[in-house]
Design a protein around this nucleic acid. Sequence first.
RNA 1: GGGCGGGUAGCUCAGUUGGGAGAGCGCCACGUUUACACCGUGGAUGUCACAGGUUCAAGUCCUGUUCCGCCUACCA
Length: 887
Amino acid sequence: MEKKELNKGYDPHEIESKWYQYFLGHGFFKAEDKSKKEAFSIVIPPPNVTGMLHMGHALNNVLQDIIIRYKRMQGYNALWMPGMDHAGIATQNVVEKELAGEGITRHDLGRERFIERVWQWKEKYGGIILTQLRKLGCSCDWDRERFTMDEGLSRAVREVFVRLYNDNLIYQGNYIVNWCPRCHTAISDLEVEYTEENGGLWYIKYPFAEGEGGVIVATTRPETMLGDTAVAVNPHDERYKDVIGREVILPLVNKKIPIIADDYVSVEFGTGAVKITPSCDPNDFEMAQRHDIDMVIIMDGNAVINENGGVYQGQDRDMCRKNVVNDLKKGGYLIEEKPYTHNVGRCYRCKTIIEPAVSKQWFVKVKPLAKTAISAVVKGKTKIFPSMWEGTYFDWMNNIRDWCISRQIWWGHRIPVWYCSDCGKVIVATEDPKECPACSGSSLRQEEDVLDTWFSSALWPFSTLGWPDKTDALKTFYPTSLLVTGFDILFFWVARMMMMGLYVMKDVPFKEVYLHALVRDEKGDKMSKSKGNIIDPLDMIDKYGADAFRFTLAAFTAQGRDVKMSEDRIQGYRFFVNKIWNAARFCFMNLEDYHEGELSPDAENYSVCDRWIKDRLNHTVADLTRFLNEYRFNDAAARIYYFIWHEFCDWYLELIKPVLYGKNSSHSKLGAQHTMLMVLKSSMKLLSPFMPFVTEEIWHKLPGDEGSLMISPFPSEDDSLKDEEAVKRMGVIMDVITRIRNIRGEMNIPPSKKLKVLLSVPDDELISIVITGKDYIIDLAKLRELSVKGEIKEEPKGVATGIAGAIKVYVFLEGMIDIAGEIARLEKEMSKLTKNLAMVSKKLANQEFREKASEKVVEKEKLKSKELQEKSVILERALSRLHILEG
RNA sequence: GGGCGGGUAGCUCAGUUGGGAGAGCGCCACGUUUACACCGUGGAUGUCACAGGUUCAAGUCCUGUUCCGCCUACCA
């Protein structure tokens, strides 16, 4: 066998890029459009084209990669579809900032040239995040990369728009929408973030137009009074019974406005009278529609007061508020002003306070779409993990409101609507029309607005597969198998994909959705630049390697919990990677004289510990498979960690050392080598989805030429590896070893001091077990002599006593006898035991327990009681002998 | 206002048919044994938020209280 050295410590740097290139070069990430293999597909949540990899992306994509690699190894035709989102507002902002550096605005460039600039920017900087995903090890089918502004995806957008329009599910209208005065566009309800902020509540008196007195209204936005067109009270409010229908004078503006009655008005709040500004408040807008009240628009797109604001024209909303309040004070209209905390809506993108404004916008009528989307989840066509999110999904879908899809920006899918200047016809078409179909006029003007970015994202699961063409990819991979995303975009994206998928494809976009939590810092705070608590995933990869980083993310992804990330934990798993590396190195060093294929699988070729570790491996496979199928990433990670570190390294490798070193001829060295290699190889397979790099490196150093690990078959449960007999026998042997180690540790006896041990074993079966395990015990417990006897009557003197099940363990303490120490040790154990025994006895003494508890449970308790009693007798005897010695 | 999640060892958290309170890190002791000190062996630590209830048996099920986090909502 060719000699291949492994370094003492594992260094991820070169190895990771080497293998990633290898994977790419061999096309292992590629899925087949047509295949006999069963398909498994995931579409990536497309990151913003402006995005840089942060912890959220890292978590999201590592989880997807683990699943897709797992499925690929299981033999599926696995597709992970990559791509990016054009991120309308965000990208436009970035490029506008760039222009500002040059001293120009997009308006200086004009629409066409500005769009060109954005494309240039995209080509130059746009792909960064996808490069970063490669550093993580993501096994996307990169040749299929898509972008929401691609020609194909744009065609899909137009097609869907036209269909929805023709089905009367898209309409245009003058409504009040959330307007961002900084981004200069409408945004959807979802894109407004509400935060509790300190503000004020102003009480303003509106005098009656005729007669004495007036009505006092309370408002958080006094400046909007310039646009008031009514005052409203509750129809059942006794206080205002007689004023309904009268008129008041709007202060500062000096105009008469009516007092109306509407159930919306709360009797309890403020004065029970509310000013109505239909152009500045969504509720007022609705009320105005109900009562056919006028509307006065007082602000422009910059939230600056317009010509309808009289003397306040030209002032922005903040300045105007100050001045209005001052003027009200002067005029004696301001009754009271008090601090008040309330919810303020801000633009999710730039955090500017949203100005509700009336404008002409396009909307999707979502109720009918939502209905189908709800029933798909009810029927289980799409399953949501963890299931608690189903409730949230239903709740939102049931209360859904129409979706404002038009944006007054330039970067995005321009709405496929044209207006004929000659006859006024509205043309909605997938292809740019050359002339008006009604009057054949040629002066057509396209709608200026573009679509919400989420509109194109909603089509992602089928648009990326080639729709509207009938492609093989679509046929093979739609509906996709799984969607993995953060719960924070359940409404933004998941819900809308459900609606669009069902509307367009008549089938759900994905069969399962796994919603993961957010990554926070170790204190549980959201990571943000302003807090300075960001941990950069790329730094972590650089420092600890992608494998360790990936494993950390998986290990902390418990369902429904936030992922609290800290560097210490990554370091902890970095140690694990090193442990794996060194275990492999050990195996490797002991395979020099190994020749595969020389060993029959007959049981006699394998020792009890060989059989034991294979049983444990088989268990691990079963558990891991189950956990991954249920998206229990943390459990999966913990299971493989435990197997490799504790079962394989701590026990098995230690057990076979003497065999490998030729010090123990009673067990087959070849059998140990064979088992060691087989278990190591299987472990690498199990670990490969989590740690694709180090496992691949180890794999290629091991004997055998089986190609790449990442496409080798994932282990499945194998009944032939089950071995209860070996598990039972090893249980006894390990228990004895642990007992002796326990005594050594508690008595502070250094490992270099070889011990003499006597075992008192009550029955023949146990004796045979102990005899076969004698070498193991001598080696792992570091003994110089081990004698095994049947049940002995006369206990030896000068020993420390331990109990391993039915076996009594006597450790001779010649010369180092510390009677007081041993007494203390035994008494400690005795008190634990007594407490335990008391609990068990109490249970068994209870008649109801014996009658009502299941037989299995009662038997278990009885057995426990018996064992504890026996132990107690032994300890008692040992103690009394020590007391005599001492005395 | 409504909803959801959480309060378990010093820290971060597991604990899925109710029947042994666990892991990792940290801590203490011993140790350099031909894979690994990025290591090994052993050890200590808990009114499972609180109060009731169901049950032979509750961290686990039910009710209430409290604290924290998140989502959602048109109360000016």
